[in-house]
Amino acid sequence: MDTNAEKSDIERVIRSWERAIQRGDMEGILANHSESVLMFDVPEPLQSEGLDAYRKTWELFFRYGAPDREVFVLEDLRITAGDTVAFATALLRIGGSSEPVCRLTLGLMKRNRAWQIVHEHHSAPHKLNSEVSQ
């Protein structure tokens, strides 16, 4: 296995997805996702399973921000790949933010010689109160 080639293929899949989001291209957003994709997102619902539910999360996203180059930007993309399973992490700038405000983890599987996103997890950090009640 050529790990660098696998990582390059995975990065192409992820960057293509990122550009599709920036263009508001729903078919491009859904491309390279498995039919049974499982997504954990920041807004409700707690989880979305399958392409139809996944599409609805992006319809909601675009209700709050028009497609634009700065609407969804991946920074610090890191990829770990095996023969048929990989994961990637990144920090996200969304809605034109100048700094990352969310985190992203993607799980991928290689099926029929092509990488597919099978799991997607977006999360946002929450500050804790400096005083802990006792």
Score class of each variant (00 low, 15 high):
E35W: 09
M1V: 14
W17H: 14
S123V: 02
I10A: 04
E18S: 03
F87T: 02
A31R: 15
L91Q: 10
R113V: 09
T89Y: 07
A90R: 01
G28W: 12
T105D: 01
R111T: 14
V132A: 11
K127E: 14
V101P: 00
L46C: 06
D76R: 06
A88D: 04
Q47P: 00
A5L: 15
E11S: 06
R19K: 15
S130Y: 09
R93S: 05
A124I: 15
M109L: 15
L128A: 11
H121D: 02
D25M: 12
S36Q: 14
E44C: 10
V73H: 03
V101C: 02
N4T: 13
R15L: 10
V37S: 04
G65Q: 15
G28V: 11
S48I: 02
L91A: 09
S130K: 09
F62Q: 04
E44W: 08
N129M: 12
T80L: 13
E70N: 11
S130C: 09
E27R: 12
A31M: 12
K7M: 13
R93V: 08
S133P: 15
R113Y: 13
F72D: 05
A88H: 04
K110G: 06
L108N: 03
S98T: 08
Q134L: 14
E131G: 11
N32M: 09
V85F: 10
E75Q: 05
S34L: 10
Q22G: 03
N32V: 07
V42Y: 07
E75G: 02
D76K: 08
E49A: 13
A90N: 01
L92S: 02
P125D: 10
G50M: 08
E11N: 06
R19P: 08
L92R: 03
P67T: 03
A114L: 14
L92V: 05
F61W: 10
L106H: 04
I29W: 00
W58N: 01
A86D: 00
P100R: 00
F61D: 04
M26V: 01
T105P: 07
M39T: 13
A20H: 05
K110L: 09
A5Y: 13
L92N: 01
D9A: 15
L108Y: 02
W17I: 01
R69I: 12
L108K: 02
S48Y: 09
G95L: 03
F72E: 05
L77D: 01
R111M: 15
R93N: 03
L51T: 05
S48P: 04
A31Q: 14
I14F: 06
D76S: 07
E18R: 00
L74K: 00
E49Y: 11
E120V: 02
G50C: 08
I29E: 05
R55P: 04
